[in-house]
Amino acid sequence: MKPWILGLTGGIGSGKSAVAHYFIDQGVHLVDADHAARWVVEPGTPALAKIVEHFGEGVLQSDGQLDRAALRSLIFQNPEQRLWLETLLHPLIGQEISQYLARAESPYAILVSPLLVESGQHRLAQRVLVIDAPEHLQVQRAMQRDQTSAEQVQAILKAQASREQRLQHADDVLLNDRNLAWLKSEVERLHNFYLTLRGGQP
């Protein structure tokens, strides 16, 4: 039987990565949309060639890899350019994700994506799990992890879907406001529940 797909998302600093690791420990096949987004623009890919043609050689590093920072600064203030890039990349990323998930051996597979809701990737999933955290904790965790300022974290929070938007799409919500041992036991509990589902629905 084909595995059903669980979409896993949450804002910056919500603890998505920790939750993803615990699911992998349970033997669940998992793909990260961020990794897929990197695969589609590796040197030699048609997408990278199109990006260079559109934005110029300035978006390449000396070794031929995409210079993400340079590209980000070009599209950050420019909605039209960002839309052009998303129109090119989102279908390709979706394809990569689908091919990868199709190889899953586990009863269900997980798509981890910080932009699950915004990018429309939630349509690839039969069920959505949102990792939620109080905003002050998100800011604190992200600052520690990325060594950035509270302002930068706030800016990223604003660019991501609001908690309300994400929670509207959620079938399950895991409020990650305690310690890792508790988080791990919650993931085990969810995993056992997911194993009882057919096609992601009770």
Rank of each mutant, 00 (worst) to 15 (best):
K2I: 10
I5N: 10
I5W: 11
L8Y: 04
T9A: 08
G11H: 01
G11Q: 02
G15L: 03
G15Q: 00
G15V: 08
K16F: 00
K16G: 00
S17F: 03
A18H: 00
A18C: 02
I24C: 08
D25E: 15
D25M: 07
V28G: 01
V28A: 06
L30W: 10
A33R: 10
D34N: 11
H35G: 07
A37R: 10
W39T: 14
V40M: 13
G44Y: 11
L48D: 05
L48W: 13
A49Q: 14
I51T: 10
I51V: 14
V52F: 09
E53V: 01
E53R: 00
E53K: 03
E57W: 02
V59I: 00
L60A: 08
Q61Y: 05
Q61L: 12
D63N: 15
Q65R: 13
L66C: 09
D67P: 01
D67G: 02
R68W: 03
A69L: 04
A69G: 12
A69D: 12
I75F: 01
Q77M: 06
N78W: 03
N78H: 12
R82P: 09
R82Q: 12
L83R: 08
L85Y: 05
L85N: 06
T87V: 12
L92M: 14
S98P: 04
Q99K: 13
R103D: 13
A104F: 01
L111I: 02
V112G: 02
L116M: 11
L116S: 11
V117A: 12
V117T: 12
V117N: 07
H122N: 05
V128A: 10
V128P: 11
I131D: 02
D132E: 11
A133V: 02
P134N: 10
E135T: 05
L137P: 06
V139Q: 04
V139Y: 07
R141T: 03
R141Y: 02
M143F: 02
Q144V: 05
Q144D: 04
R145E: 01
D146Y: 06
Q154N: 14
I156G: 07
K158E: 09
K158L: 13
A159S: 05
A159M: 07
A161S: 14
S162C: 01
R163W: 06
E164P: 08
Q165I: 05
L167C: 05
H169S: 08
H169D: 13
A170H: 10
A170W: 09
D171M: 09
L174V: 15
N176Q: 03
D177L: 14
L180Y: 06
L180N: 12
W182H: 05
E188I: 12
E188T: 15
L190G: 14
L190W: 14
H191T: 04
N192G: 08
L197M: 15
R198G: 14
R198H: 15
G199R: 15
Q201A: 09
P202I: 11
P202K: 07
